[in-house]
Structure formats: structure tokens, C-alpha cells
Nucleic acid binder design. Structure first.
Length: 555
DNA sequence: GGAGACGGCGCC
DNA sequence: AAAGGGCGCCGTCTCC
């Protein structure tokens, strides 16, 4: 391996060129933000034996310029591009190969590890020593011989992995990359910060911390310890093997001393969850000042789940409390003189299921824009109900449950009915939606892989007890994920300058736009979401609800 | 003292 | 007969 400590030349057009950026002194919690750390080096490699290294960030823009017509190969390009944009203009580009995302497209569900070291071992039989990386984070003293080797090797390995991956990549995998994942990557890179009402959040954090402490003080054990809870209950004549909400709620409903304890533990759990997961840490670590207000920028993982769903972390914005209270989402607000647009698909997964199964009765319901849950009530109870009927909410878990293989027994438990009744409900639903039932029966037999509508493979583990449920659910969840990703990128292309998306939550897009543009932007996001669904699931119309609000917590 | 598993629970 | 699909984060606990 020859290391050349200088700028790379201009390679011929469409040369695969691996790049790997090393940063020093990055804060662990903020690896996804261009706000901490310093440029250490960039290694560039078009031939795995010859690596160019630069140490000066001032040279980044020249490198970018010289390599503009090459196909960039990066392992987790989201990180490198986020950081490199501190020193050079890098618009969305077609000529990009992300070995990390490509590996997910190829082997989602098959492997569960996707680091460069994992890929090096899988494809090249090389065991990478990740120890030297620590020298970039702790106490960085500038480049030395060992670090130089390490940085150069990463670029070389990335290129070699890409060359191996290429042998497995089929035409359709490239289509998924170029039409779904790569555009979604650049859309996510363009997300803007989500403003937070810091004072309101702090007040919630304070309050819940205090409440949790009050209850903890009067309990005879550490209520955060399932072990201690079980020991305590055993000592008082009640054997339990789990201490989750279902179990404790049953005890809490008995009129006894233990019932009071169980009730208190559940209360404690509620407050302490809010004080910890949604507490001060959320505020202290991730806040960024922007003009005279504060925003957060979560880290979106483009393929966060094996199904293709995105995930979010640092902080996870996709699990902010929504059902019990709106006060948390009310802390997410529009910027000064702006409005939030909250747009979500109505019954996205049932529509996807209709498209995948081509069940004529399901298709008819959606084509006539009827409400799937009201229709379900008709099928199950023979009752015509309106959207306001409380029965409608009871129907929701039925269809959702079906799509991930919920057993009739658990369905009955959730609905608070007898197991036989649960069974009867399933029978009625399957008898009515016959083609859907056949689709489910067929797909759950698969043991190798299933596909989404784009043709993405999701590998199954035939030895897992979940294999049937995964087979049922993955095409539906995975297709839904593709729809929202495509919607994000269609919207991105409509708004290349200043893409005002601030969050995406599986079937929902949140934008923060100047008030005067609110109606226009609301239409743009709605149209983009409908177009995306139309492209991937053309047999079903998708309805989108869009609201213009001041906070995320408004109904 | 740190890593990782686990129980638990927030969301879609 | 049968752990309800997918995540990330927290505190606890075990192990090294």
C-alpha cells in the first residue's frame, strides 16, 4: 500500500473513488452534527494499493472539484458528507455508492452488523483493527505513522468492499438505490432543525422528576428494579415472573395492600420514564442555538430497520409522547413568524396491504374513500357506524394486528374480550376479505426472503420463532417506508433551495415554513406524498391529512 | 469501571 | 401450542 501525502489527480470520469474522512475530538453524542471536532485527514483511493491523504481542510474543496466526475464510494456517506460540507459545497449527487446502505439493500435481515469492519471480514476475510481510531477521539496529538496507515487502510478497504458488493448488486438493487435510498439520504441531509420551547420542556422535566421522587420515597423497594419488585411481591405471597404494565395492572386492580404498591409502581414508572427519556438530557446535549431560539437535529438512520424503515436517534424524535398527553409535542414549535405543517397518511399500512394482496373488497373500500375501520365494524359486528363511534377505535388494532401476525388470543386480550370471540372476529375478517387471507396464508410460508413493492429483498431467519410474522409484516412495513422516503425526495426536488422538513415519523412529515407560504407548502407536501404512493402502489389512492399549526401537539 | 444483556416502555 | 411487527433509550444487573 503506497501512501501519497498530497492532493489526488483528476481521475477519468466514472472512476470509483473511495473516500474516508477522519475527524478528531468529536463529541460522541454529536457525531451526526457538523458542530464539533476538527478535520484530521481525508484519504482518497481509486486503486486499492495507492492512497492519497490530505491533512488540511483548506484542500477539501479542491479534492471535491477534482473528483466531481468520479463515483464516490463511502461507508456511511451521511457522516462524511455532513462533515465535508463544512469546507466544501457538496450538492446532492448521483455518482455515489454508499457501501453501508448498499449492504442493507443487499442483505437486510440476513446480517445485523454493517460496520466497515464487518464488511471487511465478510467480503475480504480481513480483520480490521479499530483500536487506532480511539487516538482520534481521546487526546488527539496530530497525525502519526499508525494513524496514517489506519486512515489509508479504511479508504482502501471501502473500495475493495465496493468492488465485491458490485458482484452481487443486480439492476433492481441499483434502481432501489437511485430511486429511493440515495435521494432519501440527500433529503435527510437537507432537513432543518426542529425548534423547541426550552422553558416548557424544562418545566415538564422538573415536574416529572419531582413526582417520580415522591413516589419512590414511599415505596418499600427500588421501583426501577424488576428484580426487587419480584422479590417484594414474592415475600408477600404473590409470585410473578414479569413486572410489566399488564401484570402490575392486574394486581393494582385488586383491593389490597399489594394492589396499592402495584399502583404506585406504575405511577412511578410513568413519571420516571418522562423524567429520564424525555428529561433534561434531551435539552442539555442536543440543543443548538439558531438566531434567538433553539433547535434540535436528530440523527436519521436512512435504513434503520431491516424492513427499510428509517429510525432516529440522538435524540429519538420518533417516540415523543403523543397519546397520554399533548404537552410534550406542544414543546415542538414553529420558528418565529413560521407555521408547522403536519402531514400524514391516513391508514397507510392497510392501503399498502390492499395493494400487495389485490383483495378486491379492500381495493373497493379505498377506491371509494370509505373508512377502513368503519367498514371493519360492519364486517365484524354487522353494524353501520360513523367515524365518531367509539367502536371505530376498537377496530384499529384488528387490522394492524393482522398485518403483523397477532394471534387471536392476544387480540382478544387487547380488546378485553373472550378468546373465542377473538377467534370469531378473525374468521369473519378472513372470510370477508378472502383474497387478502390467501395472500397472508401464502406469504407466511416463505422461509428465505420476502419483497417490498420496489422489489427490495428482506431476508428471513428460518430458525426464528418470528419468521412467519416477519414474512407477513415486512412487505407491508417495508413498502410503507419506501413510500415516505420517495415522498421526501419528491418534495426535496420541488424545493431544492431551503428544504423546510424538520421531522419524519414513519408515515408523517413535519415542515416548518414562513407563515405566508403555509398553504402553498401544505399543498406541496400533500402532493408529494400522494405522488409517491401513486408511483409505488398505483392500485390504491392514498389520502393525506395536512394541518397548519403552531406546535406539533395541536389536534 | 466499562460493555453488554435485559426488562421495560415511548412511538408508528 | 404459540413473545404482536419495527425501532431507541433508560436504569439495572451481570460479567469481566
Amino acid at each position: 500500500m503506497e501512501i501519497i501525502e498530497s492532493l489526488p489527480p483528476s481521475f477519468p470520469d466514472n472512476t470509483y473513488v473511495a473516500m474516508d474522512l477522519e475527524m478528531s475530538g468529536m463529541e460522541e453524542e454529536l457525531l451526526h452534527r457538523p458542530t464539533t471536532g476538527k478535520f484530521a485527514c481525508l484519504s482518497i483511493c481509486a486503486n486499492s494499493d495507492k492512497i492519497y491523504l490530505i491533512y488540511e481542510p483548506t484542500q477539501v474543496s479542491e479534492v471535491i472539484k477534482r473528483l466531481n466526475n468520479c463515483i464516490w464510494v463511502m461507508h456511511d456517506a451521511k457522516f462524511d458528507i455532513t462533515q465535508l460540507r463544512r469546507w466544501a459545497d457538496i450538492p446532492p449527487r448521483r455518482k455515489l455508492w454508499d457501501t453501508f446502505l448498499m449492504e442493507h439493500i443487499l442483505w437486510g435481515g440476513y446480517y445485523d452488523k454493517f460496520s466497515l469492519a464487518d464488511l471487511a471480514r465478510r467480503y475480504l476475510g480481513i480483520v480490521l483493527d479499530k483500536e487506532p481510531r480511539k487516538m482520534f477521539s481521546d487526546n488527539y496529538q496530530g497525525m502519526n505513522g499508525e494513524l496514517l496507515q489506519y486512515a489509508a487502510l479504511d479508504a482502501s478497504i471501502t473500495l475493495q468492499v465496493q468492488q465485491e458488493q458490485k458482484k452481487y448488486i443486480k439492476r433492481n438493487d441499483m434502481k432501489i438505490w437511485h430511486e429511493i435510498e440515495r435521494p432519501a439520504l440527500f433529503a435527510v441531509l437537507a432537513f432543518q432543525g426542529f425548534r423547541i420551547d426550552v422553558d416548557a420542556w424544562k418545566q415538564l422535566a422538573d415536574y416529572n422528576e419531582k413526582q417520580a421522587q415522591i413516589i419512590k420515597d414511599r415505596l418499600p423497594m427500588n421501583p426501577s428494579s424488576p428484580k426487587e419488585i419480584m422479590q417484594y411481591f414474592k415475600k408477600h405471597g404473590k409470585n410473578i415472573s414479569k413486572t410489566n404494565e399488564d401484570v402490575l395492572l392486574k394486581i393494582a386492580n385488586t383491593n389490597s395492600d399489594l394492589g396499592k404498591i402495584a399502583h404506585d409502581i406504575l405511577e412511578y414508572r410513568k413519571y420516571s420514564k418522562r423524567a429520564s427519556t424525555y428529561g433534561m438530557k434531551f435539552i442539555e446535549i442536543y440543543l443548538e442555538k439558531e438566531d434567538n431560539y433553539y433547535v434540535i437535529h436528530p440523527d436519521y438512520n436512512i435504513i434503520g430497520a431491516e424492513t427499510g424503515r428509517m429510525s432516529s436517534s440522538r435524540p429519538n424524535i420518533q417516540n415523543i409522547i403523543a397519546h397520554d398527553t399533548a404537552e410534550y409535542r406542544k414543546c415542538f414549535i414553529a420558528k418565529p413568524n413560521h407555521k408547522l405543517i403536519i402531514a400524514d397518511y391516513s391508514a397507510q399500512e392497510p392501503r399498502v396491504a390492499a395493494h400487495l394482496s389485490q383483495d378486491p373488497k379492500l381495493l373497493k373500500i379505498f377506491r371509494e374513500h370509505r373508512d377502513i375501520y368503519c367498514e371493519l365494524a360492519k364486517v365484524v359486528y354487522g353494524k353501520e357506524i360513523t367515524k365518531k363511534d367509539p367502536l371505530r377505535n376498537k377496530m384499529k388494532p384488528i387490522f394492524l394486528g393482522l398485518t403483523y401476525g397477532l394471534s387471536s388470543r392476544h387480540l382478544a386480550e387487547n380488546m378485553g374480550i373472550e378468546p373465542e370471540e377473538g377467534k370469531a372476529i378473525y374468521k369473519k375478517v378472513f372470510d370477508h376479505f378472502k383474497v387478502f387471507a390467501e395472500y397472508m396464508e401464502n406469504i407466511k410460508k416463505r422461509k428465505d426472503y420476502v419483497r417490498t413493492v420496489s422489489g427490495r429483498r428482506i431476508w428471513l431467519n428460518p430458525y426464528s420463532s418470528r419468521v412467519e410474522r416477519n414474512a407477513l409484516n415486512s412487505p407491508i412495513q417495508g413498502t410503507s417506508a419506501e413510500i415516505i422516503k420517495l415522498a421526501l425526495s419528491i418534495l426535496h426536488k420541488k424545493l431544492p433551495e431551503g428544504y423546510p422538513v424538520v421531522a419524519v415519523i414513519h408515515d408523517e412529515i413535519v415542515m416548518d415554513v414562513p407563515e405566508r407560504l403555509a398553504d402553498l407548502m401544505s399543498k406541496k407536501v400533500t402532493d408529494s406524498m400522494k405522488e409517491a404512493a401513486e408511483i409505488l402502489c398505483p392500485s390504491v389512492p392514498f389520502d393525506v391529512d395536512a394541518k397548519i399549526c403552531d406546535s406539533w401537539g395541536e389536534k
